[in-house]
Design a binder for these strands. Structure first.
Length: 835
RNA sequence: GCCGGAGUGGAGGAACGGCAGACUCGAUUGAUUCAAAAUCAAUUGCCCGAAAGGGCGUGUGGGUUCGAAUCCCACCUCCGGCACCA
């Protein structure tokens, strides 16, 4: 007997799909798509092409493909495209090391990805393939940049930025992990530079409100985004330094503690420090302190358990609520990036202020009293609970704290000394990079006209060819003199190009829109086409993008919608975040030497086995440890199904015909048992898909079905009604495994049913076969299982109790005791409570 | 510190108020084979027992319930995110 040959089978079906362009879908109103089917946009996060695909890619695309197949067979027109996020640092660092052009390295990697995706049999509409490094694509990235620029959402500003000394580039806040560069691990430094920003903070509230428009996002992703945005409500209160005539607004979430402010602290970067200490006694000491703070790395400054340091400025400000003069300090525990870079310090009710007050021997004045009157020793009282009342707070003394917050804000507003305010942790998105391998920022600087956007009809601003990729504190593009020197689009005078490129997150913030209309040369997408396909119905990707990519893409979509370019407010209504694949319990990495690549397994077992295994390992949203034995087990199962298909094709004559489907209920014995199992599996797999893609249990159900067929088949082959049942059950197993193992599913289904499984509707479970005439009645005594009894499905309660009491095993436990209660769960269980 | 998530056999996991351990791996045994691989069949939570059967079992302690892995409270451990954010 021949054996399961995945390579031959997979090649064969891949050729069919390739030559018939099975997975391509047309846009409405163009080439004959009538729009009769509802649409479904199934999208996996696009890969960053570096080297070859890894297990995380396999998992992501296996999950997405299963969903795409499931939806197609439910009558949806499924858009399932693929592309490459091709700009970025790894290709450029490789270029610096080897001299190989980043384009060459990237494109050869894309070739590997493309080939493997085909070998995996992922059902992709290849006619829509895109890559972010092509001028055809980044032309529109630049075009969107210009639209944001026009709306004031892209701006240039000098700002303290996080600088990676090794990569010699600026990093976004999001790319700094524990004070270190996300890519190379070097401690990040603070520098002041002119940089480009996107004004994402304008959208902070809408990014929060947008959560309500989503259907299904993992709770932890929403929480992470919410925390990242970090919205705090409170008040802005103005403290004045009358001596010098400077106003210092501060942000506080606790205006109820204003009477407890006993000193005032500025961040070392605060722009007014110079003026405050000029020619004063403290000048030297303050300058030393500020310089040292600036030199220290972000990591050092944020170190835990760091004692509070600072220097008195020798100046005071006035507390607006009580007119007190309170001393000013500079300290590095105040951050310039949050709030106003200045704080009112309330040591009695803020732990940091408390520590500072202790270190500098400053007064600590309690102004809020807990309901029980207990205040912690050696710490600030920071609770914020019901029943708190104000003390030592002038006219507000005795007022409940929650009410005091409102009243004090109202008072401040009346007096013109403050107002209700909201502050965010979120900062504007720093998008410029002093690197080569990215989309050039389409701006020129003209001596006469200043900053001038490149006109749309001159896009794309193509990336020039250069010799030296290594950044030296400025963009490598600055070395391309011929390219930098240009003409001002405005006045025709001499001008110089912006030499920074865009963060790659910009490229990936809109790619899902370009898939919709990838060959459009007049605009990034046709609005009507976008209206048809958007939003993405199901997005799939790793949790590592839970904050950055998803938030940036949401911001883009909202901004584009505001410009009238899109009709949706949220790009991804459903998100599935897959867990990470590990090996021997650890993240796979070259340095650990525990990397296994999908390609190794296709050699040995074929794509179907690897894909099915990765979906079977455990719930897909959780991580999983890759096990060679595990793949083998799944491979055994698929082989078993294939052999079954061969045997059934030979030993049964008929294809399951439609008329047989009407006769199921007259079936009896094993034939009915088998068919019932098939319908149980249909029901189970379908429910598991709907219940958050519980693929592990769905695949287990198909395994159970196959096991049942093996158990019963030999007794049914000779039988006039049994044979077709075996055939039908086996074809059903093939049909149900198809979303995970598409080649094998197609092969076995074709062999048994003579049809293309992807063209047949998803099977429906027959309710008549899901229920049976008898049930297994579980009998408990005092909640403990004592017996199982076969009973009629519709037996009345009294009958069930009679059966339960009649059981010999049950009797033994009732002996000499009194039954005080009988609990009956119809169709399931009887519990006898005895004493 | 704050915010999430999770603790179940030798392993991955299933069940998510009603039969704990589906399915898979691993292990053991048998059939087949000259032999091995592959395949097929059987056993496999722990303890007592020859068996029938019984007892104990879902991180720990308590609670709710006729009944709890599942719900509630407290605690322990692990994983992830954020963290001097005023």
């Amino acid at each position: 007997m021949s054996s399961y040959d995945p390579h031959a089978i997979e090649r064969r079906w891949q050729q069919v799909w390739e030559s018939e362009r099975t997975w391509e879908v047309a846009n409405p109103g163009r080439h004959g798509f009538e729009g009769s089917k509802p649409k479904s946009y199934v999208l996996e996060m696009l890969p960053y092409p570096s080297g070859e695909p890894h297990m995380g890619h396999l998992k992501c695309y296996s999950i997405g493909d299963a969903i795409a197949h499931f939806r197609r067979r439910h009558g949806f027109e499924v858009l399932h495209p693929m592309g490459y996020d091709a700009f970025g640092l790894p290709a450029e660092n490789n270029a610096i090391k080897t001299g190989e052009h980043p384009r060459a390295a990237t494109e050869s990697s894309i070739e590997v990805f493309r080939r493997q995706f085909r070998q995996w049999g992922i059902s992709i509409d290849w006619s829509r393939e895109i890559s972010s490094h092509t001028p055809e694509y980044y032309r529109w990235t630049q075009w969107i940049f210009l639209r944001l620029f026009e709306k004031g959402l892209a701006y240039r500003a000098e700002a303290p930025v996080q600088w990676c000394p090794v990569d010699a580039t600026v990093l976004a806040n999001e790319q700094v992990i524990d004070g270190r560069c996300e890519r190379c691990g070097t401690p990040v430094e603070s520098r002041k530079l002119e940089q480009w920003f996107f004004r994402i903070t304008d959208y902070a509230d809408r990014l929060l409100e947008g959560f309500d428009m989503l259907e299904s996002w993992p709770e932890h992703v929403l929480t992470m985004q919410r925390n990242w945005i970090g919205r705090s409500e409170g008040a802005e209160v103005v403290f004045s330094c009358e001596q010098l005539g400077i106003d210092f607004p501060v942000f506080t979430t606790r205006p109820d503690t204003l009477f407890g402010a006993t000193f005032f602290v500025l961040a070392p970067e605060h722009p007014e420090i110079e003026r405050l200490v000029a020619a004063a006694d403290a000048e030297e000491a303050v300058r030393d302190y500020v310089n040292q703070a600036m030199r220290e790395s972000t990591e050092e400054r944020a170190a835990e358990e760091r004692p509070k340091t600072g220097v008195a400025l020798g100046r005071t400000v006035t507390n607006p609520v009580n007119g007190e003069q309170i001393p000013m300090f500079v300290s590095d525990y105040v951050l310039m990036e949050y709030g106003t870079g200045a704080i009112m310090a309330v040591p009695a009710h803020d732990q940091r202020d408390y520590e500072f007050a202790k270190a500098f021997d400053l007064p600590i004045r309690q102004v809020v009293e807990p309901p029980a009157g207990e205040v912690p020793e050696d710490a600030a009282y920071v609770e914020h609970t019901e029943g708190e009342r104000l003390v030592n707070s002038g006219p507000f003394t005795g007022m409940p704290a929650t009410e005091a917050i409102r009243e004090i804000i109202a008072w401040l507003e009346r007096e013109g000394k403050g107002k209700a305010a909201v502050s965010y942790r979120l900062r504007d998105w720093l998008v410029s990079r002093q690197r080569y391998w990215g989309a050039p920022i389409p701006i020129v600087y003209c001596e006469a006209c200043g900053m001038v956007p490149v006109p749309d009809d001159q896009l794309p601003v193509e990336l020039p060819e250069i010799e030296e990729y290594a950044p030296k504190g400025r963009s490598p593009l600055a070395g391309a003199e011929d390219w930098v020197a240009t003409e001002c689009p405005n006045c025709g005078g001499s001008a110089r190009r912006e030499t920074d490129t865009m963060d790659t997150f910009v490229d990936s913030s809109w790619y899902f829109l370009r898939y919709l209309d990838p060959r459009n040369e007049d605009e990034p997408w046709d609005r009507a086409v976008a209206d048809h396909w958007m939003p993405v119905d199901q997005y799939i990707g790793g949790v590592e993008h839970a904050i950055l990519h998803l938030m940036y893409a949401r911001f883009f979509v909202k901004a584009l919608a505001d410009m009238g370019l899109l009709g949706v407010q949220e790009p991804f209504v459903n998100l599935f975040a897959q867990g990470m694949i590990t090996r021997d319990g650890a993240k796979m990495s070259k340095s650990k030497g525990n990397v296994v690549s999908p390609a190794d397994y296709f050699e040995r077992y074929g794509a179907d086995s690897a894909r099915t295994y990765i979906c079977f390992m455990g719930p897909p949203e959780k991580g999983g440890d890759w096990s060679d034995e595990g793949v083998e087990g799944v491979h055994r199962f698929l082989s078993r199904l294939w052999r079954l298909g061969e045997e059934v094709a030979e030993r049964t004559e008929d294809r399951p015909r439609n008329e047989e489907r009407g006769t199921r209920n007259e079936l009896s014995g094993h034939a009915r048992t088998l068919l019932a199992k098939a319908h149980w599996a249909i029901d189970k797999v379908t429910r598991d898909f709907r219940r958050g893609f519980q693929f592990n249990t769905a695949i287990a159900a198909v395994m159970e079905l196959v096991n049942e067929i093996y158990r019963l088949k030999d007794g049914l082959y000779g039988d006039a009604e049994g044979g077709p049942c075996v055939r039908l059950a086996t074809a059903t197993a093939a049909s149900l495994i198809f979303p995970f193992a598409p080649h094998l599913g197609a092969e076995v289904y074709d062999r048994l049913a003579g049809e293309r499984v992807w063209e047949t509707p998803w099977p429906e479970a027959d309710p008549a076969l899901l229920s049976s005439e008898t049930i297994t009645l579980v009998v408990q005594v005092n909640g403990k299982l004592r017996d199982r009894i076969e009973a009629e499905v519709d037996a009345p309660e009294e009958e069930l109790i009679r059966l339960a009491r009649g059981s010999e095993k049950v009797q033994r436990h009732l002996d000499g005791k009194e039954v005080v209660k009988e609990v009956v769960v119809p169709g399931k269980l009887v519990n006898l409570v005895v004493r």
